[in-house]
Design a binder for these strands. Structure first.
Length: 414
RNA sequence: GGGGAGAUACCAAAGCGGUCAAAUGGAGCAGACUGUAAAUCUGCCGGCUUCGCCUUCGAAGGUUCGAAUCCUUCUCUCCCCA
């Protein structure tokens, strides 16, 4: 494949492709900009679609300008939102910005010749109101900005739209001028902002950047774009187990797009959906945590879900010696939100104690998989243990508490 | 500056004096089933050692035996006119 085809793979818009071709022929490293607003502490696979593309540019010898939008994050990109985005404090932004960079480097090439990390507070933070009004304020009209799809939508739905949000695209455009971008990448929802950069450069007599947009990765729910705030994401920093598990939970219909946007492999629609998904999950774990983890997770998944066996690695909880009422026990040590939540789980037979019983009263005769049942006032174990809502810690060998299908906790007396 | 509409649980949205811990949908959790933690179906979904009690319906006061529902002030949002 020639470089242009590689770079344009998966792209939705390339404005303009012939320009891109001719600029690639100039034989110098192009400055390829992509901006990320550190609005949440971690980045997810949705971001990696762009990061992977940036990496392709790097591999072809170009220079990535990774723009951390620490200034714009305090504004809040209104893209795709139907309501005002809460602005972050300077401090939150700073913390997030740090983690962003290290996470982005999981995908990007760290060679200083191939990357430049910049923060837009360096120029936007210093911009005087006068400069702003003269440079940006005269080059865009309100109508142009309001053309934007989501602004239009918000107006139509009588949702608030703050002036600050409205100015966001202008700031992003200014970023392109500041970093002298040859190319800027973004999600399809960024098209307007990216084009604003192109317009501004042109109107300032600079070479307009080439704009490339890429599909938004659909989140785990199969409906909305992957985003932190919707909770439908796989984070770059998720542990291997979560990456694998979350990947397995995507709807089948998403597999083709995940394959093409997140892996180098091709999706084979004729293969068994489960196998295809296992392969996908492995590839994703591998890209973030390495091959070894990927294989291990695949094995583990088979054990726990396909063969319905107890997982090999279980989180351990330390519980001080003493007697516990089962509801308190779940709430205090097992991460159950409230007493009512614990009751519900018990009623729904979601709680079981697995393992060799110790000699202590309360659960000594529990069989493997015994259910703990809750009736109006008393907690009654299914087995021979009667009417007592409590049980003892320590155990000679603590039981494994199983909550639902997924969560296992090994109790260790402390 | 003038006039109108609105603020309900994680989100959306009913309710408009007691039967409201608050309909319904989505999200979430659990269960059944399956090809997986897909899909589908079922149950749960403020808190509390729970036949009961406590705290919630923008905020603060007030009317009433009783308020998410009525009144007053305040805060915020939207629409129309200027």
């Amino acid at each position: 494949m020639n470089p242009v085809d590689i770079l344009c793979r998966n792209a939705v818009d390339v404005i303009d492709r012939t320009e891109l071709e001719s600029r690639l022929k100039e034989g110098r490293p192009l400055r390829v900009k992509a901006g990320f607003d550190p609005s949440a502490p971690d980045i997810h696979l949705g971001h990696t679609v762009l990061l992977r593309k940036l990496r392709e540019f790097q591999d072809l010898g170009h220079k990535v300008v990774l723009l951390i939008g620490d200034f714009t994050a305090t504004i809040g990109d209104p893209t795709g939102l139907t309501k005002t985005r809460p602005a972050l404090t300077q401090k939150e932004v700073e913390t997030n910005a740090k983690t962003y960079q290290s996470q982005a480097f999981k995908i990007l090439d760290k060679d200083p010749k191939k990357i430049e990390v910049v923060h837009n507070s360096d120029w936007l933070g210093k911009m005087m109101l006068k400069d702003f009004l003269e440079t940006l304020g005269t080059r865009f009209t309100v109508q142009q900005v309001l053309e934007r799809n989501d602004f239009e939508k918000r107006m139509a739905e009588n949702q608030p739209l703050s002036i600050r949000e409205e100015l966001y695209p202008l700031l992003q455009a200014q970023d392109s001028v500041a970093v002298k971008a040859d190319v800027e990448l973004g999600g399809t929802d960024q098209k307007f902002n990216l084009l604003a950069g192109r317009d501004l450069q042109r109107s300032l007599g600079l070479r307009p950047q080439i704009v490339m947009t890429f599909p938004l990765l659909v989140g785990l729910d199969g409906k909305q774009k992957m985003s932190k705030s919707l909770g439908n994401y796989i984070a770059v920093n998720d542990c291997p187990k979560d990456v694998f598990g979350k990947a397995m939970s995507i709807p089948d219909t998403l597999m083709a797009s995940y394959y093409s946007l997140l892996t180098a492999e091709k999706y084979d629609p004729s293969s068994h959906p489960r196998d295809a998904k296992v392969k996908l999950a492995k590839l994703l774990v591998e890209s973030l945590h390495g091959k070894k983890e990927a294989d291990a997770q695949a094995e583990e998944f088979k054990t726990v879900f396909s063969n319905k066996m107890t997982p090999t690695k279980i989180d351990v909880i330390e519980v001080p010696k003493g007697k516990y009422w089962i509801v308190d026990f779940l709430r205090l040590y097992c991460g159950v939100q409230s007493g009512n939540e614990a009751r519900r789980l018990i009623e729904q037979k979601a709680i079981s104690f697995i393992g060799e019983a110790g000699a202590q009263a309360g659960y000594d005769s529990l069989e493997e998989g015994t259910h703990v049942q809750f009736t109006s006032k008393l907690v009654i174990f299914d087995g021979p243990v009667q009417g007592d809502a409590s049980f003892e810690v320590p155990f000679t060998d603590g039981p494994i508490v199983r909550i639902g299908k997924k969560k296992y906790l090994k109790v260790i007396p402390s």
